[in-house]
Design a protein around this nucleic acid. Structure first.
Length: 285
DNA sequence: TTCCAGGACCGGG
DNA sequence: CCCGGTCATGGA
């Protein structure tokens, strides 16, 4: 894992019940690129506002301009203790941009994805989400996860649902998961919940182990291979060096970087991977 | 109808 | 180690 360079708290101000955050152009944020580029599946946009649930919290947020991020019904303490890290706004992206400048094509790709940030999601949610993602498409992944939360999560005041815990899912049967219409993946969700609940796979170790060992630990779960493991580690456990090799990235690396990624970006290869993923998805249609 | 979707498992060579 | 078939589901 590369070192996290912690930024000072953003400039914040409270206007009524809404919290305003000033986004500097040296560390930009683009909500669409971040919330809707395949790393998270529980955010949706309506009339410019993004609504979703993370960490058991409902949120509506939006950006009227590039420098203003607004959280509805939120106070500064809540931003500092949760949302700042969730959106990776405590990480300085300047070193990445600087490192990428040594490679013109990579720099172009990262500029194209300007404002994309790598979210820090809940570990168990990331594990389940990417188990569900295998041999599946994004609209259906969102549907299955939505039904998982509505069926086994806890209701929230604005109509959302928390992501269910491993303890809640572990005792369930495949029959009880059938309303999710997850197909063959239901047994994998149950195996993940069971092994995490029993401690056979220690959640806390997944944060602290080196990426190779953490990957091995996660692959004890049925239905988690190298790609799903790397997605969970990258999006849910802060292993920013993990590079999930899906069909898009394999093709992109072969075509665009046949000699491999530049050495100096390997410590944050996972972050680079997300920029490449966005670039490939957007430019190929 | 057939194919495909941010793969993984399983059996066989 | 690597290969092909298979796995549920639903949209194109």
């Amino acid at each position: 894992m590369s070192e996290v360079i912690t930024l000072p708290p953003r400039v914040v101000s409270q206007k009524g019940s809404n919290l305003y955050i000033t986004i500097s152009q040296g560390n930009p944020l683009d909500l669409a690129k971040t919330l809707d580029c395949g790393q998270a599946f529980r955010w949706s946009e309506t009339a410019g506002k993004w609504r979703g649930v993370a960490g058991g919290r409902e949120m509506i947020m939006y950006m009227p301009d590039d420098e203003t991020l607004i959280f509805e019904n939120t106070e500064e303490a809540e931003y500092i203790s949760f949302w700042r890290h969730y959106l990776d706004l405590d990480r300085d992206y300047a070193p990445l941009i600087a490192a990428a400048k040594s490679d013109p094509l990579l720099y172009k790709i990262i500029e194209y994805g300007r404002g994309l940030r790598l979210m820090n999601q809940d570990g168990f949610e990331a594990i389940c989400s990417f188990i569900i993602s295998q041999n599946n498409n994004i609209p259906r992944i969102k549907g299955i996860i939505g039904r998982l939360c509505e069926s086994f999560g806890d209701p929230l005041p604005l109509g959302g649902y928390t992501f269910p815990t491993a303890a809640r899912l572990a005792p369930l049967s495949r029959e009880q998961l059938s309303p999710l219409r997850a197909g063959f993946r239901d047994k994998y969700i149950l195996d993940a919940a069971a092994k995490i609940e029993s401690g056979e796979v220690a959640m806390t170790s997944l944060y602290t182990l080196c990426s190779d060992d953490a990957r091995g630990e996660l692959m004890k779960i049925k239905g988690i291979g190298p790609k799903v493991a790397d997605c969970a580690l990258l999006f849910g456990f802060g292993h920013i060096d993990c590079l999930p090799k899906d069909v898009w990235i394999k093709r992109a690396l072969a075509e665009l970087f046949p000699g491999g990624l530049p050495e100096n970006v390997l410590p944050f290869a996972g972050l680079v991977q997300q920029y490449i993923f966005l670039y490939m998805r957007e430019t190929s249609k």
